[in-house]
Nucleic acid binder design. Structure first.
Lengths: 203, 203
DNA sequence: ATAATAACTGATTAGTCAGTCAGTTTTTTG
DNA sequence: CAAAAAACTGACTGACTAATCAGTTATTAT
């Protein structure tokens, strides 16, 4: 890892866990063991560093999704939903600090008046929602998922799983023990029922 | 409104929208039109002010829930779910700044080493989850809601609706247009299916 | 009306922070 | 190897911030 990458990664962890404003550039430089000036040599300013982190997150997520969608093959859309939730939670755990940073209010705050930040955030969220969209479309093809509006339903499923990640990261409840329930409820929410009812009336 | 209340309410709005660290006591005093010393006269410190806000939020939520549960009468648990989601979103909108403050990382951060903050947060979240617990219990009594584990299911339903509020507040997507889908998907998630099948088989 | 108490003020203080820059060390290039 | 370029340093600065406190004004009690 180069110095620049070291700073980037350490800053991601600190910003995610302490918050942007609460993390000082001096503290950051001390945790890595470099002079405080080095940060500004590489990133120009604290905000420049933050934007570089966002770009890195964007890049990470693009890579993860590209490799995940390359090997997609599931028995049914509904079964895929389970895998997809597991993958999302795996990602949020593997890149915990990066996901926590995305959930920081400072991030969405900055996006309001910084177009670079806004562009990254938009692209990242589209990718995250996409995983649910593809699942719903696949499930509707094999009739395992109900004919619900794809985009809207995907957004709600996303905010559900994302809310779960937050619950976990905030340590308010022991959310880790809720994984099975989350999957089951998500499936109940989306699974197709027309077949069951029809076969019932048919008899 | 007394001066003290004025400061409390203005601080709630500023902390919620700009963040705790990003809001200075000078800025706060200037928006109300009082001397900066007045804040410290009433609240001792910036953190004391924050804790007073949390107590106020706690109080607000207790009051709202007490009056809501006083007049509870619904045709079915499933119908109640719709009302309860609407009530939750109504609350989050009526007390927007207070709900946004609850979602700030600084709040859950402070709870880790401040017992007063922790106690308030715990009580508030219990009340918020309670609304879903009561609905599930009611629905299970009239057989409109499936026999799922009450607490766990309520936690997930809560995190779903709470995630929705965040989506709305962060302005990333036009979440306002998703209300009907949210209600529908929540109902699909929880509604009982055994009864339908039974009544069907009975005929 | 007067004393006593509470509410309020704002200049001051001690400390912190992002950012700078002249100078040093390391790496690359010819 | 020498010269040039890039990487890095850390003391310094000016702007800003939470908190203080001696003094002032408003309110209440007697």
């Amino acid at each position: 890892m180069t110095r620049k990458e070291q700073i980037l990664k350490a800053a991601t962890v600190l910003f995610a866990n302490k918050g942007y404003a609460e993390t000082t550039t001096l503290e950051l430089s001390e945790t890595i063991g470099v002079a405080s000036g080095t940060i500004f040599y590489h990133f120009g300013s604290k905000e420049g560093l933050f934007l570089a982190i966002l770009e890195d997150i964007h890049h990470t997520i693009e890579l993860e999704f590209d490799s995940y969608f390359k090997e997609l093959a599931f028995p049914s859309g509904l079964k895929m939903l389970e895998e997809v939730i597991a993958f999302y939670l795996y990602l949020a755990s593997k890149h915990e600090s990066q996901f926590m940073l995305l959930q920081q209010p400072h991030t969405s705050k900055l996006a309001l008046d910084n177009s670079e930040c806004h562009a990254h955030l938009e692209a990242i969220y589209n990718r995250l929602v996409e995983i649910f969209e593809k699942t719903i479309v696949a499930g509707q093809k094999d009739a395992s998922i109900e004919e619900l509006p794809v985009r809207k339903t995907a957004l709600i499923a996303f905010s559900m799983v994302d809310g779960f990640v937050r619950l976990k990261n905030n340590n308010i409840y022991d959310a880790g023990a809720l994984f099975n329930e989350l999957v089951k409820l998500c499936q109940r929410m989306l699974e197709s029922r027309t077949t069951e009812r029809e076969s019932c009336h048919a008899t």
